[in-house]
Write a protein that binds this DNA or RNA. Structure first.
Lengths: 223, 223
DNA sequence: CTGAAACTGAACTCGCGAGTTCAGATCGGA
DNA sequence: TCCGATCTGAACTCGCGAGTTCAGTTTCAG
């Protein structure tokens, strides 16, 4: 049998390609498909095309592997959303349409298989691994809210929005726009009709603008 | 030893008191404390003061027991919330304060240990038991939204709110008022400072009234 | 009083999965 | 060419937990 150093067989997966990232990719898939408890180390190793001891060499144990997977996933998702937010222009041109466009992108990240799965995994294990929750928030939702708050603040400064507190507005924007998603997609276990999605986003943005749109006066604060 | 039909010893739990409900009570506690996978049938039986075969006689297997627990829990929680909503008056007297009061009650149900635990369990097992999700929604969130929509609609008919669609407004009210809860309480794993809770509720109601309060005109629909 | 139904407790089966061990293969670098 | 690090595969340990079995007990209706 001649040596096969010129190419790796994809299935068997021998060679010096990054075992570590292969394991992480496989772990994401298996964890998100099966859940933490149901996911088997054997299955992950097999999916990664790697021997079990290799996996243990890299990650120590199952729980630690899970932590790394969650942190990476949160960061990846957050980066995608932040990139989408960065494309929100500062001039108030067609503000409603722009907000809808951005909201769509944000919402799509949550609707992705990975997004939902990460959220479910986080909920499921939050009480067992409270520190993990903090880390995921720090790398995930926090930066998203901060960036969004910044954009909204820009718009407010130029008179296109009427806000008291950009951070609150950012949180409420996200709540309004994605509050219906769990129901629509049954926590991500069912596909969402694009029309339903569009409606959800539109009504969310509508209400946001009813509250914070600039042509309108805001109601007097109650005593 | 004289007969003890006048009273059961609470600890040992012998006698004809409802074994079934004793098991359910214990199951709620153990499932919510440990999560589905970690919860042991032995632990549940022990907590219920019941022998394992009795448990299996009543519920067949672990998964079915879990289903019953979740359905019951959803119904119980929904009933509490609905009761709170029913106390929302129809006259617009001090509308903001009344909305806040109701929102507080709604939010407290989600903040309760059982509320959070049920939500985490639902998220965790939704992909494995999709039908369960439907049932929980049908007995849990759906009635709540319907009742709330009814109350809001009443208020709108009397000119105290300015709504297009009461169902949408109800969903958005809940989203605005409880959107911050996961972050505040770290998915229910940490206590929430009453002041933070009050702020979250107040800002949610504020924004809701900015969007739907009656003195204001609603922004023109965009093309 | 009696017999059926429900309950008990303890021991048992059985499969699963996390983590380990080890002898050998493979690779990169010097 | 050779060393050390890394990877492999397969077999193994070990504990855990779901579900069962069974012989004996309690309860209650008739």
């Amino acid at each position: 049998m001649r040596n096969v150093n010129e190419r790796e067989l994809p299935g068997t997966g021998r060679g010096r390609i990054d075992k570590r990232s292969a394991i992480l990719d496989a772990a994401v898939k298996v964890f998100t498909r099966e859940g933490y408890a149901q996911a088997g180390i054997d299955a992950i190793a097999a999916a990664a095309g790697v021997a079990k001891p290799t996996l243990y060499n890299h990650f120590g144990d199952k729980e630690n592997l899970f932590r790394v997977v969650m942190r990476d996933g949160a960061e990846r998702t957050a980066n995608r959303i932040v990139a989408a937010l960065a494309s929100l222009p500062d001039d108030g041109q067609d503000l409603a349409a722009e907000l809808e466009r951005v909201a769509h992108r944000v919402v799509e990240c949550q609707l992705s298989d990975e997004g939902w799965a990460l959220q479910r995994l986080l909920y499921a294990e939050a009480s067992r691994l409270p520190d993990l929750y903090d880390q995921v928030v720090a790398r995930g939702s926090q930066p998203v809210q901060d960036v969004l708050a910044g954009r909204l603040s820009s718009l407010a400064n130029r008179g296109h929005l009427d806000l008291d507190d950009p951070a609150v507005a950012a949180a409420q924007f996200i709540a309004l726009v994605s509050g219906n998603l769990p129901g629509l997609s049954a926590l991500g276990t069912r596909p969402v009709a694009p029309a339903d999605l569009a409606t959800a986003v539109r009504t969310g943005v509508d209400t946001f603008l009813r509250a914070f749109g600039t042509p309108r006066r805001r109601p007097a604060r109650r005593p």
